[in-house]
Design a binder for these strands. Structure first.
Length: 894
RNA sequence: GGGUGCAUAGCUCAGCGGUAGAGCACUCGCCUUACAAGCGAGGGGUCACUGGUUCGAACCCAGUUGCGCCCACCA
């Protein structure tokens, strides 16, 4: 493997080759592995599990965000000395995967039934082996520092055993039961769905009012699903509704059927809505099912699992959507339709996987009794054992856990964990544990599989070896933080909470939680703040950006936009900007290397340094502390912002420019000091940036220091693990570098330089042409020692030669007299001075007015008043200065 | 229907009681040998609207308008 010669870094950073090389090294050197045995008080455990992506999927931009943030967290912890584990893996994604393989079969003209259950699941496994690992390769491209030795899959043997174990335990505890209930049914996938697998949209439908019964014994009901009237077994009214009290208990005729159905009184009916009377179809509506139960009404199923009418009569074999108009027309012919409202907007459920309209359906399914589990899940957050970031999101969490329906966990699919329950011919039921043999002859296993989320809910501990008390489980559970989008707070987080607390309850309340922190981020949006979606056509393939701009640029863009719970807007322009930043860093390092930056020197001693060096060290200390705090609070965007400005504006634009004259000064001591500070600051900067942009920083850090990898360099912040904090090896406290005097001094220098540049720019003078100049009055100011640097930055000619100044600029007590080699544009200068004067006068006037307000002077804090006085003084000084310069201005040239 | 959040420069956002900030975009000038994926300078905002609290409001309170998101079994 050939390394780039550090002295010959190309002038542009080429990510592709560097990324491949660096990742291969991390993997080969085992830098991403976490050893449970290494956990100790000085190297405590830090653990995260990856939200397992679907095997069917490929990395989309949302994953890229999720992974970038997780990787930044784990990399920083690793540098801080933690034994840091990030565990990767994938989810078998029941319905999604089965659908993909079934679609593949359909192209061969086959259905899963043609293969049979065994052959079909074999085929899915085969498919998983071939294309399921795609996303893992993509994770390498992104730079995810996961421990590949621990990769898990929700269907592998260990996790299947965990599934069976917890099922059996819940079953024995009476928390899993089988019952005939109305569930969400997808007639296309032909399976039950849980509430969260159903998406509601406002759809156009029709609201049809139908007259049931005749004459005095008639009643009008309204419905959006006309065809279900074939299965009506009652009409319900409110018990206190005087309009219908005479009908309660009597039977009326159900149109088209010849059947007579009772009128029942039920408090659930809202007398204000519609006619105050509702048709009751217990087999096809969840509300009606409850009403039916309360009144012992029969349930008449009129549709099969495909949504085809099974009720005998003229509508037999019609699809539900064909039956709707057919039934409506038939009713109209009989004069039963009282009113029709079309279009009528109402919420309709759709299968979260295929979009088909969900059909509520009465069927025998398995459920988790959620009550006690959800209560425990809520309490863990309420009493602070688990913290949600940002805390405002906890409200949504509580809304969910406090009012959760029992969870339907059986799916009429073949791909998934088969329900470990067996039935005998005589109707006995046995739940089989993982280490038990199934019952013999005459018993058959339940044909259904478990909801995918059932196994995902075990992820934080099943991946660590549960139900065995493994070393990993003891070392890394509870995991430290779970990072995910707020959109799956309910889907996944709640379920992990419920099952983690239940399965690990023996460990006690503190140790049974699946994670201590939940760090939520938002959705990725486009540059107009629009949600990315395939239908909108604004999706981005992160791999495309990684190819074109580099993984670091892609990561930096995402991290820079991320705030706790906040959405992230991105566009290609911004990735290009991040790419530019990486390149800037590359070139800063290139400059440093070409100038002998020395990162191996002892930690710089401010007492021996000039103010320029003390200034950059002071700024480094500030940005280090800020970055450390911000990352601790999951404020990735702000941390990136702080580092971006430090690196670009302060380090590159000012420090490196100031270092040039120092390096060229020929003063051996100054050169050595500059090289040492240059090396030190760049080293720290690379470490601080490494969690977010791991590739460039590693490449440059190796070139700069000769070290193996920045991954193993100590984190520069004060926060560190256990007792290793602040070690002399390079982490530790930089607060001794804080230097207000140096900051003020360099601040003045910047102000002076900027002022002169502005003058020259306004005057249209060539910035590159050396100008003879004198720095009058610099002697008595703090800038006295910076004359050479100022001349270099401003490209002023060397001092000494006599010249005739044609213009002057004042700032920070220094008058810069310039020979502009031409008559300056007096009119332009006058305009500029007048404009500045107007600004200063307005400022002075406003401040004066304020200070003249007695209530302000009396009641505002002294510091605020003092600040206003300073402001006024400054404004007045500025007015005096500008007035003087305007008066001194020669008359406009003729 | 119930919650909940947001309205600040052309775009995306930060600021959350003391007289407006960043990135990108824009204008002007520079190939100043680390970087033109760059350097320097500049323009641009009655902080959605209306009231209130306060010496003082982009920031706190109430209402209005306009967006967004989540939840939801009202036929």
């Amino acid at each position: 493997m050939t390394e780039t010669d550090p002295r010959q870094l190309p002038p542009q950073y080429a990510p592709g080759e560097v990324e491949a090389r660096r990742y291969a090294h991390w993997e080969a050197a085992g830098l991403m592995r976490a050893d449970a045995k290494a956990v100790s008080p000085s190297a405590p455990a830090f653990a995260m599990v990856i939200p397992p992506p679907n095997v069917t999927g490929s990395l989309h931009i949302g994953h890229a965000l999720d992974h970038t943030l997780m990787d930044a967290l784990v990399r920083r912890r690793r540098m801080q000395g933690y034994t840091a584990l990030w565990l990767p893996g994938m989810d078998h994604a029941g319905i999604a995967t089965q659908n993909v393989v079934e679609r593949e079969l359909a192209r061969e003209g086959l259905s899963r039934h043609d293969l049979g259950r065994e052959k079909f699941t074999e085929r899915v496994w085969q498919w998983k082996a071939e294309s399921g690992g795609k996303i893992l390769g993509q994770m390498r491209r992104l730079g995810d520092s996961v421990d590949w030795d621990r990769e898990r899959f929700t269907m592998d043997a260990g996790l299947s055993r965990a599934v069976q174990t917890i099922f059996k335990r819940l079953f024995d505890d009476g928390l899993i039961y089988r019952a005939e209930r109305i569930i969400n049914w997808c007639p296309r996938c032909m399976t039950a769905l849980s509430d969260i697998e159903v998406d509601h949209t406002e759809d156009e439908g029709e609201l049809v009012s139908i007259r049931y019964g005749d004459g005095d014994d008639s009643i009008v009901v309204a419905t959006t699903r006309v065809e279900t009237m074939l299965g009506d077994t009652a009409v319900a009214v409110h018990p206190d509704d005087p309009r219908y009290s005479h009908l309660v208990g009597r039977e009326i005729e159900l149109p088209l059927s010849g059947r007579r159905i009772p009128v029942v009184a039920d408090p659930h009916v809202d007398p204000e809505f519609g006619t105050g009377a509702v048709k009751v179809t217990p087999a096809h509506d969840p509300d009606d099912f409850e009403i039916g139960r309360r009144h012992q009404l029969p349930s008449v199923m009129i549709m099969d699992e495909r949504g085809v009418i099974t009720a005998h009569g003229p509508f037999l074999h019609l699809d539900r959507f064909e039956a709707r108009p057919a039934v409506r027309d038939a009713l109209r012919e009989e004069g039963r339709i009282v009113a029709e409202r079309r279009p009528y907007l109402h919420a309709v459920g759709h299968c979260g996987r295929c979009g088909t309209t969900v059909e509520p359906r009465l069927s025998l399914q398995w459920f988790v009794k959620v009550g006690p589990l959800a209560k425990a899940a809520g309490d863990a957050v309420r009493d602070g054992r688990v913290a949600i970031h940002p805390a405002e999101m906890s409200g949504r969490y509580f809304d969910w856990v406090d009012d959760m329906h029992d969870w339907c966990i059986s799916r009429q699919l073949w791909w998934g964990h088969r329900i470990p329950v067996w039935y005998s011919a005589s109707g006995e039921t046995v739940c089989v544990g993982p280490d038990e043999d199934p019952p013999g002859e005459g018993w058959t296993q339940d044909g259904d599989v478990l909801d995918t989320w059932f196994s995902s809910a075990l992820w934080p501990f099943s991946t660590l070896g549960w139900p065995d008390s493994t070393e990993d489980l003891r070392a890394f559970y509870p995991t430290s933080v779970l990072v995910t989008g707020y959109d799956i707070l309910f889907f996944w987080v709640v379920r992990m909470m419920m099952f983690g607390l239940y399965a690990m309850s023996a460990a006690g309340p503190e140790q049974s939680v699946p994670f201590r922190h939940v760090a939520l981020h938002g959705l990725v949006r486009d540059q107009y703040g629009k949600k990315m979606s395939k239908s909108r056509g604004n999706t981005v393939d992160p791999l495309d950006w990684i190819d074109r701009f580099g993984a670091d640029a892609t990561r930096f863009t995402l991290a820079r936009g991320a705030s706790p719970g906040g959405d992230v807007a991105i566009s290609e322009d911004w990735v290009a900007g991040s790419r530019n930043f990486c390149n800037k860093l590359w070139n800063a390092a290139r400059f440093a290397l070409l100038n002998g930056a020395d990162a191996s020197a002892a930690r710089p001693d401010p007492a021996t340094l000039g103010s320029t060096d003390r200034w950059i060290l002071s700024r480094l200390a500030a940005v280090t502390a800020a970055t450390d705090d911000l990352l601790e609070q999951y404020e990735f965007g702000k941390a990136c912002e702080a580092l971006y400005h430090f690196a670009w504006d302060e380090f590159c634009d000012w420090y490196l420019e100031l270092a040039k004259p120092a390096l060229a000064s020929g003063d051996e001591g100054a050169v050595a000091a500059t090289r040492a500070v240059l090396g030190f600051v760049l080293d720290r900067l690379l470490r601080l940036l490494h969690p977010v942009i791991p590739f460039v920083t590693d490449e440059l850090w190796r070139a700069l220091t000769g070290g193996d990898s920045v991954m193993t360099a100590p984190w520069p912040g004060q926060r560190a693990s256990g007792s290793t904090g602040g070690s002399s090896t390079g982490g530790g406290d930089l607060s001794a570098f804080a230097d207000a005097a140096a900051e003020a001094e360099i601040g003045a220098l910047m102000q002076l330089v900027t002022e002169v540049r502005r003058f020259r720019s306004d005057q249209g003078l060539r910035p590159t042409q050396p100008v003879p100049a004198a720095l009058a009055g610099i002697g008595g100011t703090p800038l006295a020692g910076h004359e050479a640097a100022i001349r270099a930055l401003l490209r002023l000619a060397a001092p000494g030669e006599a010249f005739a100044p044609t213009a002057s600029v004042q700032a920070c007590g220094v008058t810069v007299e310039l020979d502009t080699a031409a008559t300056i544009d007096v009119a332009a200068e006058r305009r500029r001075l007048e404009k500045d004067l107007a600004t200063a006068q307005a400022d002075a006037a406003a401040t004066e007015r304020k200070l003249a307000t007695p209530s302000f002077v009396e009641r505002a804090p002294a510091a605020v008043v003092a600040r206003s006085r300073d402001r006024l003084a400054a404004a007045q000084a500025e007015i005096a200065r500008l007035t003087g310069r305007l008066e001194a201005l020669p008359p406009a040239r003729s």
